[in-house]
Design a protein around this nucleic acid. Structure first.
Length: 411
RNA sequence: GGGCGUGUGCCUGAGCGGCCAAAAGGGACGGACUGUAAAUCCGUUGGCUUAUGCCUACGCAGGUUCGAAUCCUGCCGCGCCCA
C-alpha cells in the first residue's frame, strides 16, 4: 500500500519533471504533492494569460501541456486573465507601453484564448478555475500599492535582464513597469497558488510571487519554468510578432507545412517540448543514421497536428503535403476565391488586379513583382507579362509561389 | 531646470542642399537546387490599371531656397552629463 503510493509519487514527479527547464524547487514540489495527497486536497496551479495576445501558438502549448499534466494528476489549474496587468504590459515585451484594452476587448480575447487552450486543457470545473486579476488589483489604493512596492528593491529590479538591457540600450523604462512583477506576484498571494507555471522569461516575475507569499505568511509557491520554444526560423523564440510561429488554431495543413519548414537542428527540441514521445523514441528519430531527417520531421509534424485535430486530419495533412511539395502537384482540394464582378470588364480582368483581389498580394506593385519574377501561373500556364488581361469565366486556377493557390470565380 | 547629443524605409544603419524612393547589412518574399531543412546562386523589397509619369515618405509643425532627409526655428520622444 505504502509502496504503491510511493511509486505513484515517483511516477508523478517523473512526469512533471520532463521537459522542464527548472523547478524552484524540486524538493518543495515533491513535499507539496505528498502533503496535498495526505490532506486530500488539490494543488492550485497558477498560469497567467495575457489578454492582449489571444493567438496561441506552440510556445504557449508547451506550458499548457505541462499544466494539463498537473490536471491529470488531479490538481486544479487556476488561469489568471491579466486584465488589470494588461494596462501595463509585461516589460518582457520590450516594446513600448501597450494601449489600454477595453473591458469588452479583454472578454473577447479571453474567449478566444479559452477556445484554443481548451484543446489542451481539461476544462471541467473541478480542474479549471478562471479568475481575472482586476478582481483584487482594481480595488487597491495608493497606500496598498506602496506597501506592495516596499517588498522590492530597485537593485533587484534592475538585475532583471530585460530591464538592464533596455537601460543600456537607451530605451525608456517607466516607473510603473516596475510594478508589473509585483502585481503578478500579488496574484499568487490572492489565489493562494501552490505552483506557478511559466516560460524562462517569466522566471523573475514568478519568483517574486514566492517572496510576496512568504511575506504574507503563505507557503511560497513552487515555480515550474518551461523552456522557451524556438520559432520556425530556428533562431528566435516563437512569437506572434516575429511571424515564426505555428498557431494552435491554424489549419492542419498550415501547421503541418510550417513544421516541415523548420531547420533540422530544431527537431530535437520540438520533439521534446511539443510531443508526448519518450526520450528513447526521440533519440531514435533524431539520429540521422536510424531515421532520415525528412521522415523524422514528418513524424514530428504528424504528432503535433494530431494533438489539435486528431489522427485522421493529421494524416490528411501529411498526404496533402506530400502531394503538393514532394510531388509538386496541385492540392486535391482548391479553395475558391470569389472576386467582385465589378472588377471584371468585358469578361476580362488585369492579372495584377486579380492577384490583389484574391489577397495573394497586398498591392498591385507587389503583384507585378511576383509576376515579373516568374512566381505566377494562371490556368496552368506560367505567366510573366504583368500587363496581361485574363478571363475567369471557367473558374481557372491561379497560383502564386508554391503555397498560394485558388480557383477564381466572380461573386 | 541647464548643457550636449540623437530621431531615417520591416529592423540595424549610411546619407555632400540637387545625380535620394534614399548606400550597406539583416529579415522577408520570389526563382534555381533540395527534403517547403541547411548551404549556395539569382532577383525583388513605398504606392498608383498599366507609367523617359504622378503621389507619398527620412519624429511633428513651420521657415530659408529655383530645389531640403540634408540649413534655420519651435515642439515632441529618447540618451548622457550637471542641478
Amino acid at each position: 500500500m505504502i509502496d504503491s503510493a510511493l511509486d505513484n509519487f515517483a511516477a508523478a514527479m517523473h512526469t512533471l519533471r520532463t521537459g522542464v527547464d527548472h523547478i524552484y524547487s524540486e524538493n518543495e514540489l515533491q513535499n507539496r504533492l505528498m502533503k496535498a495527497a495526505k490532506e486530500g486536497r488539490q494543488l492550485r496551479i497558477k498560469l497567467g494569460m495575457d489578454p492582449t495576445a489571444p493567438d496561441l501558438h506552440l510556445g504557449h502549448a508547451v506550458v499548457l501541456r505541462k499544466l494539463r499534466q498537473f490536471q491529470d494528476l488531479g490538481h486544479r489549474a487556476v488561469l489568471i486573465i491579466g486584465d488589470f496587468t494588461a494596462m501595463i504590459g509585461d516589460p518582457t515585451g520590450k516594446k513600448k507601453t501597450r494601449p489600454v484594452l477595453s473591458a469588452q476587448q479583454v472578454e473577447e480575447n479571453a474567449a478566444t484564448y479559452f477556445a484554443q487552450a481548451g484543446k489542451i486543457l481539461d476544462t471541467s470545473s473541478l480542474k479549471l478555475e478562471i479568475r481575472r486579476n482586476s478582481e483584487w488589483l482594481s480595488t487597491m489604493n495608493f497606500a496598498d500599492a506602496l506597501l506592495l512596492a516596499q517588498q522590492m528593491t530597485v537593485a533587484r529590479m534592475l538585475e532583471r535582464d530585460t530591464f538592464s538591457e533596455r537601460h543600456k540600450a537607451g530605451e525608456a523604462i517607466y516607473i510603473h513597469e516596475f510594478m508589473y512583477p509585483l502585481m503578478q506576484g500579488w496574484d499568487s498571494v490572492m489565489i493562494k497558488a501552490d505552483v506557478e507555471l511559466g516560460g524562462t522569461d517569466q522566471t523573475f516575475n514568478n519568483l517574486v510571487g514566492r517572496d510576496l507569499q512568504a511575506g504574507q505568511g503563505q507557503e511560497p509557491q513552487i515555480v515550474v519554468i518551461m523552456p522557451i520554444l524556438c520559432g520556425t526560423d530556428g533562431v528566435q523564440k516563437m512569437g506572434k510578432s516575429l511571424g515564426n510561429y505555428v498557431g494552435i488554431a491554424e489549419e492542419p495543413r498550415e501547421q503541418f507545412g510550417k513544421v516541415m519548414s523548420i531547420p533540422d537542428s530544431l527537431m530535437k527540441q520540438w520533439f521534446e517540448l511539443c510531443t508526448p514521445l519518450s526520450p528513447a523514441e526521440i533519440a531514435k528519430l533524431t539520429d540521422g543514421a536510424q531515421t532520415h531527417p525528412r521522415q523524422a520531421k514528418e513524424e514530428l509534424a504528424l504528432c503535433i497536428v494530431r494533438q489539435f485535430y486528431g489522427d485522421a486530419e493529421a494524416k490528411a495533412a501529411a498526404d496533402d503535403f506530400r502531394r503538393r511539395f514532394t510531388e509538386g502537384q496541385l492540392p486535391q482540394e482548391i479553395a475558391t476565391q470569389e472576386i467582385d464582378s465589378q472588377l471584371v470588364k468585358d469578361g476580362h480582368i488585369g492579372l495584377l488586379a486579380l492577384i490583389k483581389a484574391v489577397g495573394f498580394a497586398p498591392s498591385t506593385s507587389e503583384a507585378r513583382r511576383l509576376v515579373e519574377s516568374g512566381a505566377v501561373s494562371f490556368g496552368g500556364n506560367k505567366i510573366s507579362d504583368p500587363k496581361i488581361q485574363v478571363s475567369i469565366s471557367d473558374a481557372p486556377i491561379l497560383q502564386v509561389g508554391k503555397r498560394r493557390v485558388c480557383k477564381v470565380t466572380t461573386r
